[in-house]
Design a protein around this nucleic acid. Structure first.
Lengths: 123, 123
DNA sequence: TCCAAGTATTCGACAATTCGAATATGCTTG
DNA sequence: CAAGCATATTCGAATTGTCGAATACTTGGA
C-alpha cells in the first residue's frame, strides 16, 4: 500500500510535470473556472494540444470539467495544488542563484527544439 | 521569463514524478542524511537504479551529496519539498474516495509490467 | 601497488510522452 | 436534418524516461 500511495503521488507530479500544464493550472488558480477556448487563446496554443493536456489533468482529477451547452468550463479541483505551486515559487526564491543557473542551463539546451538543424554535440 | 519559470517548475515536478524517487525523498526527509547503500537496501532496489534516480534528483538540486571517504551521503536540500509531499498527502486524504478509485485503477493496470505474459485485452 | 568496497556512468532495448494534423463527437440554431 | 462552433480523440513520428547489465571511477587499506 505504501507503494501504491507513492505511485499515486508520482502520477500527480507527473501530471504537473509540463510547462503547459503548469500554465493551465496557474491560469485556473488565478482566474477560476475558464472555458477551453479562453485557455488556448490566453496561452497561445493549439486547441488540440490544450485539450490533450486538459485530458491529462482530468485523468488525474487535478481539474474538473463542467459542461454548459456548447462549451466546457474547467476549474481546479483543490486549492491544495495552488499551494503546491506557491511552495514551488518559495523553493525557487530560496535558492535563487542556483535556480538561475538551472534556468541558464535550460536556455542553452533550448527546450523542445524540433527543427534545430545541426545542433548535435560531439561529432 | 514567465515561461522559463514554468519550465523550471515542470522540471522539479518531473524529478519527483517517479515512485522510487518519491520513496527516496521521503526516506531522506524522515531519516535525514543517508548513505547510498542504506538507501538501496532499505528500498530493496538495485544499486545502479538508485544511483540513476539520485542523479536525477541531484541534477535538479533537490538533493545534495556529501562525500565521506568511501561513501556518499545524501540529504534533502530544502524542507519545502517535504512540505510539498505533505500537501500531497493532504490532497490525497481530501479526496480519499476518488483517490482510492484511482489506486484501484492503477492496480488493475499493473504498473510497469515487464513480464506480464498474456495480459493483453482485446484479441 | 593491488584489491575490494561503494558509487557513478554508459549502453541498448523498450515504454511512455508530446506534438500537429486529421478526424470525430456533441450541441445549438436554422 | 444540415451547418457550424466548441471540444475531444486518434494517428504517426520524434523525443525522452526507465531498467538491468556491464563497466568505470574513487577511496582506503593490505
Amino acid at each position: 500500500m505504501q507503494d501504491n500511495l507513492r505511485r499515486f503521488k508520482a502520477e500527480i507530479f507527473q501530471a504537473l510535470a509540463h510547462p503547459t500544464r503548469i500554465a493551465i493550472v496557474e491560469l485556473l488558480r488565478d482566474d477560476g473556472e475558464t472555458a477551453v477556448t479562453a485557455v488556448y487563446e490566453r496561452l497561445e496554443l493549439e486547441q488540440a494540444n490544450v485539450s490533450q493536456h486538459l485530458a491529462v489533468l482530468r485523468s488525474k482529477h487535478i481539474v474538473v470539467a463542467r459542461k454548459d451547452g456548447n462549451q466546457v468550463f474547467y476549474s481546479l479541483r483543490d486549492r491544495a495544488l495552488g499551494k503546491v505551486l506557491d511552495l514551488m515559487r518559495q523553493f525557487f526564491h530560496a535558492h535563487l542563484e542556483e535556480s538561475l543557473a538551472l534556468l541558464e542551463d535550460m536556455r542553452t539546451k533550448e527546450p523542445r527544439t524540433k527543427k534545430t538543424p545541426a545542433g548535435g554535440r560531439k561529432p
